[in-house]
């Protein structure tokens, strides 16, 4: 499936980062971008929206990105979804924890649009 046919969900408690990621995804021709402020809101939206990619922050109130990842991987219908973690938590043990929880790939903040696109292309070739 090409980016132009895909719906992405961006999860971050800061609207700034949601807007930055939304702009990159729209520039990459994604058909639609849905936003959520935390993992709990994202998981609720995933019950009623067909999504092809999740781009999530790690450190959020209510439910973290790692908790969302674990819930998605434990859900029969959602478990295969590409999950890109966008995180300031780039210490080795954090990355190991995310890999154990079957994250598809991760982008460390700060990042350029080119780096984001490169990380995304590794899990969804355009």
């Amino acid at each position: 499936m090409a980016y132009k046919d895909m719906v992405a969900m961006v999860v971050d408690d800061f609207s700034t980062m949601r807007r930055i990621v939304r702009k990159i995804l729209k520039d990459l021709q994604f058909r639609e971008v849905i936003e959520a402020e935390n993992g709990a809101e994202a998981f609720k939206l995933l019950q009623t929206n067909k999504v092809d990619l999740i781009v999530s922050d790690w450190n959020m109130p209510v439910m973290t990105g790692l908790e969302l990842l674990k819930m998605v991987r434990a859900d029969e219908r959602l478990k295969g979804l590409p999950f890109l973690m966008v995180t300031a938590e780039a210490q080795k043990e954090n990355i190991v924890e995310a890999i154990k929880a079957k994250v598809s790939n991760y982008v460390v903040k700060p990042f350029s649009p080119a780096v984001f696109a490169e990380k995304l292309a590794k899990i969804i070739p355009s």
Partner: peptide
């Protein structure tokens, strides 16, 4: 944006 910049700077420094 001030909050997100703070988050990113602190994260990068901790790394």
């Amino acid at each position: 944006a001030v909050g997100e910049l703070t988050n990113m700077i602190c994260g990068d420094a901790r790394r």
